[in-house]
């Protein structure tokens, strides 16, 4: 078994118009910048994919990564918890112009909806958002005398994820807090594509240290020296 893919372009080639794409990371930490840029490059050459629904905690920062994806008009709908950043202008302008739809989800509910999607749990109850605008129209039920809000699972056609080490069978480790949403998104997508700093041979990662088991991963591509959104933004970078 070898899930490795040799180029970034090949890794994102199957993502079609209208797809739901989960993109890992929390702000820049754990954001698969190179995979996102490869998707933008494909769009610039072919006009596809467009009308994407993107799931991410945020809405991009500056003019690279997710912000650049939005700036290119590829995203029809964003499902996120916090569409603000140091430089949120790209999303803000599109949102206020009515050019992008926003589904705002509390951060813990977003994480659990993604986990539920990957775990085959269609709905669950959470205390979060009870009595607030974000629970309007949702089913409420009482358990042990407290009210809870029913939330639905979230699944995707594709997940784009950044990890640290990945073996050819797709077992992954992460770097520090870059883990965040990535392991959950690996579970919740029909096809999970991971950029890793280094592809290693099966057995090189101690099974005790595997964070995402390879069963949740369909493809890996090596990006040896991945860029950081924060560093790019401090340099005023745009993609392309």
């Amino acid at each position: 078994m070898d899930k490795t893919i040799s180029t970034l372009a090949e890794a994102v080639a199957e993502i079609g118009d209208g797809a739901t794409v989960m993109i890992g990371g929390f702000g820049g930490s754990g954001s698969p910048i190179e995979l996102i840029h490869a998707l933008i490059d494909r769009f610039r050459e072919t006009g596809s994919p467009r009308n994407l629904t993107v799931v991410n905690n945020n809405a991009g920062n500056g003019h690279v990564g997710l912000a650049a994806l939005i700036e290119h008009g590829m995203v029809q709908k964003l499902i996120c918890s916090f569409p603000r950043s140091a430089d949120p202008r790209v999303f803000t302008e599109k949102y206020l112009a009515g050019e992008i739809e926003l589904e705002l989800v509390p951060q813990g509910t977003l994480a659990e909806r993604i986990r539920a999607g990957g775990a085959g749990i269609p709905a669950f109850y959470t205390p979060t958002a009870y009595g607030t605008d974000l629970a309007k129209g949702k089913v409420i039920a009482e358990f042990e005398g407290r009210p809870y809000v029913q939330e639905r699972w979230l699944k995707a056609d594709f997940a784009l994820v950044k990890a640290h080490l990945g073996d050819r069978q797709g077992n992954l480790t992460y770097n520090k807090a870059a883990r965040n949403f990535n392991p959950l998104m690996c579970m919740a997508a029909a096809t999970t594509i991971v950029q890793v700093t280094r592809i290693v041979e099966p057995g090189s990662i101690d099974p005790e240290h595997v964070v995402t088991p390879g069963i949740f991963v369909q493809g890996l591509v090596e990006v040896f020296d991945p860029q950081q959104e924060e560093v790019l933004n401090r340099a005023g970078a745009h993609h392309p």
Binding site: S81, P88, F91, L96, P106, Q107, G108, T128
Partner: peptide
């Protein structure tokens, strides 16, 4: 007005 953003605030107040 503006762009709504909630982050983890609604989760943090429970639990």
């Amino acid at each position: 007005k503006g762009v709504p953003a909630v982050g983890g605030a609604m989760d943090l107040v429970h639990g």
